[in-house]
Design a protein around this nucleic acid. Structure first.
Lengths: 138, 138
DNA sequence: CCGGATCCGCAGGGATACTG
DNA sequence: CAGTATCCCTGCGGATCCGG
């Protein structure tokens, strides 16, 4: 992450006057999590595991089409580290590694759900907006 | 984006047997939108606009602390192109540009809401998981 | 053979200076 | 004030090698 602290001087009117007495440290932490989670591969991997339950490394790689081995390993390791994914190594030959969402990971995928539904519901509207924008630009 | 098509040969059991007869082209489009939307700066900008209603360029830049001018302009332009953000230029000197969420952008921010709530609710659990992971690794 | 660590080339993001 | 243009460097992705 590593983002500068927000300048306290800015004055903007809040639309909905939330009782915003949250600890700025907490807020930073939440934002840090958001930044980790707001990642293309993270969302796609969590979604894949949510849909299929348990997957092996190669299965995951195929389902999340287009991801490099490096990014898959990297992302999945960070998810394990954050307690969102359970990684089980079966010490056999050839190797066999299973990935599953933890309960917390599952709850996150539920939270993502709204975004997926939004995307399914609005993709045509987005397309239309793009056309309109392109036409307007000319 | 640019991601390889999923290999049709993979066979994995679905956890919840969704009536998944969706057009793969549609699915690709949805995924394309997800990939655009699952972006750190995108989420932060949309959230900022959702919280504050209407913002000028510099206000937005301060609130979304740490973003470079390039990424702010770039992201906000793509949001405008996709019909999520309305950009209003007041032809005065010095220039004055307002950014607001369109109704569609607002609906997306509502969809994001679940993720924000999740982050607020689970950040301590994530912290704990990280500690546990670090301890286990040693 | 599967999972993943390593090396490298290149696109994409950050910092800075400049303009209407 | 709100960008655009430029340079630079990190970090992604592809290829390759390795350990079990």
């Amino acid at each position: 992450m590593q983002r500068a602290a927000a300048d306290p001087e800015i004055e903007v009117k809040r639309r909905d006057p939330i009782p915003e007495d949250v600890d700025p440290a907490i807020e930073a932490l939440v934002e840090e999590i958001i930044c980790k989670v707001a990642d293309k591969w993270t969302m796609l991997i969590i979604e894949a595991l949510h849909e299929h339950g348990t997957l092996r490394y190669t299965q995951l790689r195929k389902i999340v089409g287009g991801i490099s081995q490096k990014m898959l390993t990297q992302t999945v390791r960070r998810l394990e580290e954050d307690g969102l994914v359970l990684r089980t190594v079966h010490p056999v030959i050839p190797p066999h590694v299973d990935y599953t969402l933890t309960p917390m990971g599952d709850s996150l995928s539920k939270a993502f759900c709204g975004v997926w539904i939004w995307a399914e519901k609005h993709y045509d509207e987005v397309q239309a907006a793009r056309s309109a924008f392109a036409a307007r630009e000319r």
